[in-house]
Simulated scan of single mutants.
Amino acid sequence: MTGAVLGAAAMTTGLVAGVFTLYAHTIMPGLGGTDDRTFVGAFQSLDRSIINPWFMSCFLGALVLTGISAALHLPADGHGGLPWTAVAFVLYLVVVVITLAVNVPRNDAIKAAGDPDQIDDLAGVRRDFGEARWRAWNLVRVVLSLAAFGCLLVALVRYGGRG
């Protein structure tokens, strides 16, 4: 069971790291070059769409599965996977905290602005969203989630070579 949970933790963490990376190198730069109305409307639509069972099960599942995996390694970690899994858990926990403390409030604020066709000051909504700050913190999430994924891959290799 330890190997299956560790594999699932690595898979979900890798998928989420991929989502954050895609936002960093494609979605946000693409939206950045649009007018205010397009930016606000498209970002609202993207944010509503990403809150779905597929993404949420990976986003939250990565943390839960990594924690369970670390706990399963505790009794007899003769292969050295525990330190890598524990570090991955801490790194990904920071990703979750950043997401909830920085990105989600900005996402919620831009959605709360309402229908872009009814907004008088689209430039103000976009400015208040803090696009540069959102992107900077997303880049931190990219780095941390990729590092957590890498740690889980090392743990998998160590687990697979245990005997």
Results as ranks from 00 to 15, higher is better:
R135M: 08
A24Q: 14
S145F: 00
R133A: 15
F20Q: 00
A86T: 11
M28C: 00
A109M: 13
R162N: 00
I110G: 09
V19N: 05
A86V: 12
L100Y: 13
P53A: 11
F55E: 00
G114C: 10
L139A: 05
G160W: 11
A62R: 10
P75L: 05
G150Q: 04
V95R: 06
G130R: 07
D108T: 14
A42K: 03
W134D: 05
V142E: 02
D36A: 15
S45N: 06
T38Q: 08
L15S: 02
V64M: 11
A132T: 14
L74R: 13
L100A: 15
R162M: 02
A9L: 03
R133K: 14
T99G: 02
R37D: 06
N103R: 10
V95G: 08
G130D: 05
W84G: 03
A112I: 09
L156C: 03
D120C: 07
A10T: 10
T66I: 00
F55V: 00
G124H: 11
V16F: 11
R135V: 15
V16Q: 11
V140A: 08
G150E: 08
R141H: 01
A62L: 09
F55K: 06
A136G: 12
L146Y: 04
W54I: 15
L91G: 10
G14D: 05
V5G: 04
T12N: 11
P83R: 10
D47R: 01
V96W: 15
L65M: 07
A71E: 05
A70S: 14
A136L: 14
R135G: 09
G80D: 08
A17V: 05
T66R: 01
A148H: 03
D108A: 13
F39H: 01
V64P: 02
C151G: 00
C58V: 11
V96K: 06
F89G: 12
A155V: 07
V5P: 03
S69F: 02
A17C: 00
V143E: 02
L46W: 02
V95N: 13
A147D: 03
A70P: 07
A17L: 03
V19Q: 00
S69W: 07
A62H: 08
A147Y: 12
D128T: 11
W54D: 02
L63Q: 11
I27V: 15
F55L: 08
L6Q: 11
S57M: 12
V64A: 15
L144Y: 01
K111G: 14
N107S: 10
R37M: 04
F59N: 03
I27T: 14
R162I: 01
L74E: 00
G161D: 09
T2E: 05
H79F: 01
P53N: 04
H73T: 04
W84P: 03
S145C: 03
T21P: 04
M1E: 07
V154R: 13
A113N: 12
T85V: 14
A17S: 11
G124R: 15
R48V: 09
M56T: 04
I27F: 09
T38F: 04
S45A: 07
A148K: 06
F20E: 00
C58S: 10
R48N: 09
D120G: 10
L63I: 13
M28A: 08
G3A: 09
A76C: 02
L156D: 06
D108G: 14
D77K: 00
G32W: 03
A86L: 07
M28S: 03
A62I: 09
D77G: 08
G80K: 05
G81S: 14
A132F: 09
W134R: 09
G114P: 13
